[in-house]
Simulated assay, not measured.
Amino acid sequence: MVLDEADALMDESFVEPLEEILAHAPLAAGAPGPVGPGEARTQVVVVGATFPTGLSQTLGKFTDVGRFITLSTQSLHRLPPHVQQKFLRLKGRDKPPELLQLLKERPASGGAVLIFCNSASTVNWLGYILDDHKIKHLRLQGQMSAAARAGIFASFQKGDAPVLVCTDLASRGLDTSSVQLVVNYDFPDTLQDYLHRAGRVGRVGSKAPGAVVSFVTHRWDVDLVRKIETAARKRTGLPGMDSSINNPPPKGG
């Protein structure tokens, strides 16, 4: 059993079905019940760029998390050093014209662009603005059917449009090697989300290192930016993401 994008599985909409699936799987390490001589056991592989503490607690109900073997790279939770990170402090009303200028100044050979918004309504609203300015784009958000989302992303990969306006649905598990610019039109709510969005550029197979441009509007955005800038300058991991699947936090901690 492979649990991919582990931190996304801790979203409240997924936890209950995840626990139901785990309850029906005879997990290899510490699974309850008698083990017969021919009884097969399920191995579990947990994959993610970030590990949430809640995952250890969930898995601990069904197996011995202390027996998991952890494999990670030295760059875990670190921003890719070859990708430029740029932050623009703006008032909310200045975000649309700043985005339009950014898109119109990009050369045709500048690669594809991902524009991240924090809600489906903003994706749709921003799409209307791009339509008004004759900027060819596609939109991807969670209110669309799974089949529609798959078709839209396939069109984007084929190069049918150079710009994809999206929610965090597009920040994980998708091949975005053609993307050379990520724009955080809405600044993400967490450092984990920023790391996943920034990971859409500078990927293996990309023709250029790429860049991330973030619009910073709110006071709480600034707090996250300071942490990101410090981690980038010191070449350290982003704070608050050093949890291990083997060591769940103490209860009540």
Score class of each variant (00 low, 15 high):
41 R>M: 10
41 R>E: 12
41 R>N: 08
41 R>C: 10
41 R>W: 06
41 R>H: 13
42 T>S: 12
42 T>V: 13
42 T>N: 09
42 T>L: 11
43 Q>P: 02
43 Q>D: 12
43 Q>S: 08
44 V>Y: 12
44 V>D: 03
44 V>W: 03
44 V>G: 07
44 V>K: 10
45 V>L: 15
46 V>K: 07
46 V>L: 09
46 V>T: 09
46 V>H: 07
46 V>W: 06
47 V>W: 08
47 V>T: 08
47 V>N: 10
47 V>D: 07
47 V>L: 15
47 V>A: 13
48 G>T: 03
49 A>P: 04
49 A>F: 03
50 T>A: 14
50 T>R: 07
50 T>W: 07
51 F>R: 03
51 F>C: 06
51 F>W: 11
52 P>I: 06
52 P>H: 14
52 P>E: 10
52 P>A: 15
52 P>W: 10
53 T>M: 13
53 T>A: 15
53 T>L: 14
54 G>E: 12
54 G>D: 11
55 L>H: 03
55 L>Q: 05
56 S>Q: 13
56 S>V: 11
56 S>G: 15
56 S>W: 14
56 S>T: 13
56 S>F: 12
56 S>I: 06
57 Q>W: 14
57 Q>C: 05
58 T>I: 13
58 T>M: 06
58 T>S: 04
59 L>A: 09
59 L>H: 13
60 G>E: 01
60 G>K: 07
60 G>I: 07
60 G>H: 00
61 K>E: 04
61 K>F: 01
62 F>S: 04
63 T>N: 08
63 T>W: 00
63 T>G: 00
63 T>F: 01
63 T>Q: 02
64 D>H: 02
64 D>K: 09
64 D>G: 01
64 D>C: 00
64 D>R: 14
64 D>P: 00
65 V>C: 01
65 V>F: 03
65 V>D: 00
65 V>G: 04
65 V>Y: 01
65 V>L: 07
65 V>E: 02
66 G>N: 11
67 R>H: 12
68 F>N: 07
68 F>D: 07
68 F>V: 01
68 F>Q: 03
68 F>W: 12
69 I>V: 15
69 I>S: 08
70 T>H: 03
70 T>Q: 08
70 T>A: 05
70 T>Y: 00
71 L>H: 11
